[in-house]
C-alpha cells in the first residue's frame, strides 16, 4: 500500500528539495511506500484533503485545525523552536508609520495562505479594518506581495514573517515593517491521517531523534530547521482553540 505525503504550499521554495530528501529518508525508516505530492496552491491542497487523498501532511495551523477536528488527523511533531508569525509592512516611501494611520478602502496585498492572512487581518483591526472594508490585492507569493508594495499597486502587505525575512536585502530595504506578530504558539505541524496512524509512535520516536545523527542533521538543515519536537494532542487542541478565537 502506498501513502500520500504533502507539505502545505506556503513552504519556502528554497526547501522543496529538502522535503523530497526527507520523504526518501522517511520511507527507509518506516519501511512504508510514501509518495510526496506537492500542490501548487491551497485550492488544490484543500480539494485533495476533501477527497481523503492525504495520509501525512506538514500542515499550516489553519489546515491543522480542520484536519484534526474534521478528518481525524493526529499531531506528531513540529519544527523545534519555530512558530508562525506575520508581518504588516508598507513601502519605505509610504507616509504611513503605524497601522492606526491606515484608512478604510486601503489596498492590502496578501497570499492565499489562510493563517497568515488571519493573523495579518487581526493586526489591522486597531485601524478598524476588516475583510469588508479593505481592497484586497491577491498575490501568488510573498515576493509578489513585496512587488505590489514597491510598484504602488498595494498600500500595505501581509507577510509570513519567515518569508519576509527571506526576501533579499535589496527588497527589504525598500519596505517598512509596521508590526511583527509575537504570538509564539501558532505553528506548522506534521500530522498523520487515519490510515497512517499505526506509524504515529514510531514516527515520533524517529523524528525526535533525527537531529542526533549526521545524516538527520543534514536533512533537517535542508528543511530549514534544527530538530523535530514532539507535539501532543492537547497542545494541538490548544492551538486550534486559539485559532478559533481569532477567526472572527
Amino acid at each position: 500500500m502506498s501513502y500520500t505525503f504533502t507539505v502545505s504550499p506556503d513552504f519556502s521554495p528554497d526547501h522543496i528539495s529538502g522535503w523530497y530528501i526527507f520523504n526518501t529518508w522517511l520511507q527507509r525508516q518506516t519501511c512504508e511506500a510514501i509518495h510526496l505530492e506537492m500542490f501548487n496552491d491551497f485550492d488544490e491542497l484543500h480539494a485533495a484533503i476533501h477527497n481523503d487523498q492525504i495520509d501525512l501532511i506538514y500542515a499550516n495551523p489553519y489546515d491543522a485545525a480542520m484536519l484534526v477536528r474534521e478528518k481525524g488527523f493526529l499531531p506528531v511533531a513540529k519544527a523545534a523552536g519555530e512558530s508562525d508569525e506575520a508581518i504588516i509592512a508598507v513601502a519605505e516611501s509610504s507616509a504611513v508609520n503605524a497601522v492606526e494611520e491606515l484608512k478604510q478602502g486601503v489596498r492590502v496585498a496578501y497570499t492565499d495562505d489562510p493563517d497568515v492572512r488571519l493573523m495579518g487581518m487581526i493586526m489591522l483591526e486597531p485601524a478598524d479594518l476588516n475583510s469588508e472594508n479593505i481592497t484586497p490585492v491577491l498575490a501568488g507569493s510573498y515576493p509578489v506581495v513585496a512587488k505590489h508594495l514597491l510598484k504602488n499597486e498595494a498600500d500595505v502587505g501581509i507577510f509570513l514573517a519567515e518569508a519576509f525575512d527571506d526576501l533579499s536585502n535589496l527588497i527589504k530595504n525598500q519596505l517598512k515593517v509596521l508590526v511583527r506578530s509575537q504570538i509564539s504558539v501558532i505553528h506548522h505541524a506534521l500530522l498523520v491521517g487515519p490510515k497512517f496512524q499505526h506509524q504515529r509512535d514510531a514516527m515520533t520516536e524517529l523524528l525526535t531523534a533525527m537531529h542526533h545523527d549526521e545524516k538527520g542533521v543534514a536533512i533537517l538543515k535542508s528543511l530549514g530547521f534544527s530538530a523535530w519536537e514532539k507535539v501532543d494532542d492537547e497542545e494541538t487542541e490548544f492551538m486550534i482553540d486559539l485559532m478559533d478565537t481569532l477567526a472572527t
Binding site: 492606526e100 487581526i122 493586526m123 483591526e125 486597531p126 485601524a127 478598524d128 487542541e237 490548544f238 482553540d241 486559539l242 478559533d244 478565537t245 481569532l246 472572527t248
Partner: peptide, 23 residues
C-alpha cells in the same frame, strides 16, 4: 474572545484570547 474548550464532546474549560482593540 472567549471560547469553551471542548474535549471528547465535553467542555473542560475556557480559553480567552485578547488582542489590540480599535481606539
Amino acid at each position: 474572545t472567549v471560547i469553551p474548550n471542548i474535549r471528547k464532546g465535553s467542555v473542560v474549560g475556557y480559553t480567552s484570547v485578547r488582542r489590540k482593540p480599535s481606539r
